[in-house]
Design a binder for these strands. Sequence first.
DNA 1: CGTAGGTCCTGCGTGC
DNA 2: TGCACGCAGGACCTAC
Length: 283
Amino acid sequence: MPELPEVETVKAGIAPVMQGHVIAQAEVNRPNLRWPFPERMVDRLTGKRVLGLRRRSKYILVDLDSAETLLIHLGMSGRMLVSGHTVGEFHHPHPVPAKHDHVVFHMDDGARITFNDARRFGAMDLMETAHQEDHWLIRDLGPEPLGNAFNETYLIERLKGRNTPIKSALLDQRIVSGLGNIYVCEVLFRAGIHPARKAGRISAARVASLVPLIRDVLSEAIAAGGSSLRDYRQSDGELGYFQHVFQVYDREGKPCVTHGCNKTITRIVQSGRSSFFCPQCQR
DNA sequence: CGTAGGTCCTGCGTGC
DNA sequence: TGCACGCAGGACCTAC
């Protein structure tokens, strides 16, 4: 589920109930997710005030008044359930504890943030806020796709001479950080580039065209997430899911949306992951 | 060095 | 209804 827009949406959803509040109790129900939790995690979280939340790539960073920062990665199936707070007229009751509720933050005002992750590809770690850039999971990340450091010149330079398929290159978080399988498929469709095309053999002009398209796709997805987030009436508090209309992702065998194109969307597997594309529109 | 493939986990949909 | 299989939005690690 979580690529950059979903992580941004989750961050925006949990920020109001965390920021400025004290974690009255950190409940940690297992010793690890993808990796072991940090030493004394419960003690290092309990009683700490949350100064603010940030996002770097697909990581949520929670700054604490202990000069430490909590790093959260949602993996494939990680989700955050917010409860015990009131939005407008609606009060979210606490849910029945569920399978895979691995970590629960009990806030000082009664709100809860429950981290549920069936597949446990997610992660949490604690680090000194001052040295966050040196953290091994953050260190080698490429620029934020919505930031100024990610631009046409940069991308052309980074893809120059690369023999890897453009699909794989855009999934490489060291080149640009935050894209995942869905949005790479969508971006390549908009750009009219075949996912198997070698990154280094795409003209500079076409590579340059990817930059604004990446920004567009991510911005639209964030906007869609934000709008669904505002509507809590039918929500049980679960954040990060929103219905987004995909043009190619998960549309194998369905008609291409391009006007006048009568081809159907094809699925291929590239380094173990599905790529969806239109064989007519993407070359 | 760059690149492809295996791997960690659980759950769900599909076909028999 | 049960069961086997393929697949899932991530990304590290190893082998070539």
